[in-house]
């Protein structure tokens, strides 16, 4: 009898532990929603930060975040996918391959602020890119590179060998096999990894603070499209900027309650976005598992 009780007690302890984690999360969410939701209106999204809390908004922050994410995706996706393809489909066992693999595992564990220091020393000063959108995008691209690589490799590994053999047997080259089979069949898995990586990048604060992004930006970067030829402009890449998490940090550090409500509102938007992205990724993965036929 006594021993059977143990199981029941532990099951209860387990549920309590789970509840602590889940309830904390719910409290966080609800608390932020209660403080922040009243601030969330159209005006909040279309206004610059201001000295007056009630007039302040996140326009420069969400535009900045969007542009930084564009740069991040532009570098991280091709590099990460290419690395994953190389390691799974091309690399033969050698010390170089081992080095790359150990290195990727290791990079995944480097604290994000260290990437900030790298960017400060290298991008900002050595390359002279300054405290720009380009610097920030590159930094976050390096930060999420391991996530994209690992997801790409896992997705590729789940493709059965007979598919590759079928392709090679028809006279396909390695690249043809990758292009017509490996990439299309792993795309959903890769996409999942990219979304998770981007969700992480969008919430990263420390590395961007470290490169010295300004916290008070009451203007937008130059528009990427112009009325006169050549119509596109890349001046925005070198523009100063702020991003959502930095805006939130800035408001959180203010002692006035009104600004902290702004922080809650910005936080709510941020959490909503990362949760939506993570949720999308989880849903994709679930669908993928159900659809796999091999």
């Amino acid at each position: 009898m006594h021993r059977k009780h143990q199981d029941v007690v532990f099951a209860l302890v387990g549920i309590v532990a789970l509840m602590v984690a889940v309830l904390t999360f719910l409290t966080l969410f609800v608390n932020m929603a209660v403080d922040g939701l009243p601030r969330l209106d159209w005006h909040f999204f279309t206004s610059f930060p201001s000295r007056r809390a009630t007039q302040a908004g996140i326009l420069s922050a969400w535009v900045g975040s969007t542009l930084v994410m564009l740069v991040t995706a532009f570098f991280a996706v091709p590099l990460g996918v290419a690395s994953g393809i190389y390691l799974e489909e091309y690399a033969r066992k050698s010390w170089v391959t081992d080095l790359i693999e150990i290195n990727i595992t290791n990079l995944a564990g480097v604290p994000s602020i260290v990437y900030g220091l790298l960017a400060l020393g290298l991008f900002v000063y050595q390359f002279g890119l300054g405290q720009s959108i380009l610097s920030a995008g590159l930094t976050l691209a390096l930060l999420i590179l391991p996530v994209v690589i690992v997801a790409t490799r896992e997705a590729i590994r789940s493709i059965p060998q007979v598919i590759r053999e079928g392709s090679y047997a028809l006279g396909a080259t390695r690249w043809q096999t990758v292009r017509y089979h490996i990439l299309p069949y792993s795309s959903a898995g890769i996409l999942t990894g990219i979304i998770i990586g981007m969700a992480r990048a969008i919430g990263e604060t420390a590395p961007i603070i470290t490169i010295g992004a300004l916290t008070f930006i009451a203007f937008l970067p130059p528009a990427p499209l112009k009325a006169e030829p050549p119509f596109v402009s890349f001046d925005w890449l070198m523009s100063p900027f702020t991003v959502m998490p930095i805006q939130m940090f800035n408001w959180t550090s203010r002692p006035e309650a009104a600004f902290q409500d702004n922080a809650a509102a910005a936080g709510f938007v941020l959490v909503f976005m990362t949760l939506a992205m993570n949720g999308l990724a989880i849903w994709l993965r679930y669908r993928l598992r159900r659809n796999i036929k091999w």
Binding site: L28, M32, T205, M248, L270, T274
Partner: peptide, 11 residues
């Protein structure tokens, strides 16, 4: 839970 931005946890 692991995907929530840490700035939000800080807040």
């Amino acid at each position: 839970l692991g995907g929530v931005p840490t700035i939000v946890y800080g807040y």
